[in-house]
Design a protein around this nucleic acid. Structure first.
Lengths: 259, 259
DNA sequence: GTACCTATGTGTGTCGCCGTACAGAACCAC
DNA sequence: GTGGTTCTGTACGGCGACACACATAGGTAC
C-alpha cells in the first residue's frame, strides 16, 4: 500500500528490492504530465526517462505526410522511452501524454548506468521491453486484419487497464488520431460498441458499460497482450518477495523513511 | 574477409572482439536452414538461438483463424529469436526460414549467460533488438497506410539486402503469406512494379530491375529502416576496431586458428 | 511430345474505410 | 437565456483489397 505520490505507484519501481529502490530514489523527480504534452519529439535527444504513476502515455508513429498510428501505450507498469537504453540516441517515435497524471523522471545517463550495472532493474526493464514488443506486434496484426470497432475496443481496454476509473476522458477526434483513422470512423465504431452494450458515451468521455462485452468485441488481440502484461506483473511480484526476506524491522524503517 | 562457412559471415559475430569471439566459437554449431523450415512454433520453448549467415529468416504472427503477417525479417546482421533473452519463455511468433542457407546455432542457456555476463555481445544484441523494434513499428504503420505495391517493394528490398544475388526465389503465394494479403493481390502489385520498371518476374522468381525505382515505390518506410540498420552495422564496425588494437602477430595467429 | 501440376493473370461483386460535406447536439461564457 | 464553439451523427461517391471463379502459361516427369 504505497502512500499517495510515491514512486511506488509505478509498479516496476515498487517491485525493486529495497536496496535498489533506495539507491534510485534520490535520482527521481516528480513531474506532472498534462494530457497532450509532447514528451519526446521525433529526432530530438531523450534527456529523461519517465516512470508513469497516474498518467498514461502513448507512443505514436508519424508518417511523412503527418498521418499517425499508435504503436504502444504505457502506464504505471513501465517506463518511457526504453529505446534509449538499447542504443537509440534520439526518439524515433513521438511520445505524448494521453491521460493527465503524474510521473517520476530520471536523467537518461543515470538510468543507463543502472541498466548497465546489471541490477534487478535491468531484468525488469528487459521484461517490460518484451511486453512492449508484443504490443507493437499485435498492433501490426490489428492494423492489417481488424475492423475499427475491434481496434477501438482494444484501445479502450488498454487505456482503462492503466487508469483507476472506468471512464476515459477522450474525444472521438483524439481516439481517431491514436488509431490512425478518421474521426467519423470512430463515431461509427463507438455507436456499434454502444449498440452492443459494451460502452457508454458522453461528449468527450467514453465509459465501459460491460467489460466482458468489450473484451469480446476486441477479440484475441487484447487477450494475448493482457496475458503478457500479467506475466510481466507476476515477474515484478515474484521478485518483490525480496521484501519479505528482509528483517521486518529494517523493512518498516526503510519504508517509512522513503516518504 | 571471412573464409566460406565461418561464423564471421554473421556480421554480429564478426564484430566481436577476438577474446569474446574465441570464447563463443566452441559453443556454435553450423546448421543448414532449408526454406520453409519452421524454426520456432508458437508456444513451444526456444532451445537454440540462430545466427544466420547465408539464410534469411522471417518472424510471422499468426491469428486465431490462421491469417499471417510478417513482423520482422532477419539475415546475417542479427540473431533469432532475441525475445528469449528478454524473459520470454516460449516463442510468441512463428519463425520460419524464408530463404535457404546456413546459420550457426547456440543453446539458449549459453547465450543467455553470455548476455547476462554483460560483454560487448550484449551491447550488440540490444542494439539489434532496437533495430528489430523499429522494423516492427514500421510494419505496423505500413499495414495501416500503405498499398500492397508499396509493401511488396519494401519486402523485396528488405529480403534482397540480406542476400547476395539480386533475385529472390519466391512465388506470389509465398509473398502473399508474408505480407498477409491474397496471392492475387501480389500478382497485381508485382505487375505494377514491373510496369514501373522496378522488377522483373519469372515463374517462382522476382528480380530487381531498377533499384532506385523500387526504393521509390517502397516509400519512406524502407528508407527509415535502412538507415537504422546502417547505424546498427556501424555500431558493429566501430566496435570491431578492437581488432586493430591487438598486437598484429597475436591477431593473425588467432585469426588462423579459428578456421 | 504429352500430361500433369503448379504458378500466374484476369474478372466480378462485395465490404470497409476514406474524403468530403453538412446538420444537429452538448457545453461554455457572458 | 443567447451566441459561439466544439463535439457528434449521418450521408454519398470513390477506392483498395477481399472472396471467389476461372483461364492461361511455365515447368517437369514420363
Amino acid at each position: 500500500m504505497p502512500p499517495p505520490q510515491s514512486p511506488k505507484q509505478n509498479r516496476m519501481l515498487a517491485a525493486l528490492s529495497l536496496a535498489d529502490y533506495t539507491h534510485l530514489l534520490p535520482l527521481l523527480e516528480l513531474v506532472s504530465m498534462p494530457a497532450g504534452y509532447v514528451i519526446y519529439e521525433i529526432g530530438l535527444p531523450i534527456r529523461y526517462l519517465y516512470f508513469p504513476t497516474t498518467c498514461i502515455v502513448t507512443r505514436l508513429y508519424e508518417t511523412e505526410n503527418g498521418a499517425c498510428t499508435q504503436i504502444g501505450i504505457i502506464g504505471n507498469e513501465g517506463v518511457v522511452d526504453i529505446s534509449v537504453l538499447f542504443g537509440g540516441e534520439s526518439s524515433h517515435a513521438r511520445v505524448i501524454v494521453q491521460s493527465t497524471g503524474e510521473a517520476y523522471r530520471i536523467k537518461t545517463g543515470l538510468l543507463k548506468s543502472e541498466f548497465e550495472a546489471g541490477t534487478e532493474l535491468r531484468h525488469f526493464l528487459l521484461r517490460f521491453a518484451h511486453a512492449l514488443m508484443i504490443q507493437t506486434e499485435q498492433i501490426a496484426v490489428s492494423n492489417r486484419y481488424h475492423t475499427v470497432d475491434q481496434q477501438l475496443a482494444y484501445f479502450l481496454l488498454m487505456s482503462l487497464d492503466r487508469l483507476s476509473g472506468n471512464e476515459l476522458h477522450i474525444t472521438h477526434e483524439q481516439a481517431g488520431i491514436m488509431l490512425g483513422v478518421r474521426r467519423e470512423s470512430v463515431t461509427v465504431a463507438a455507436n456499434k460498441l454502444h449498440m452492443a452494450g459494451a460502452i457508454h458515451c458522453r461528449r468527450g468521455h467514453i465509459a465501459i458499460a460491460d467489460r466482458n462485452q468489450l473484451e469480446a468485441s476486441a477479440g484475441e488481440n487484447y487477450k494475448i497482450v493482457k496475458e503478457e502484461y500479467e506475466r510481466l506483473l507476476e515477474t515484478y511480484v515474484s521478485s518483490a518477495t525480496h521484501f519479505g526476506r528482509l528483517p521486518e524491522k529494517q523493512f518498516k524503517r526503510f519504508f517509512q523513511s522513503i516518504k
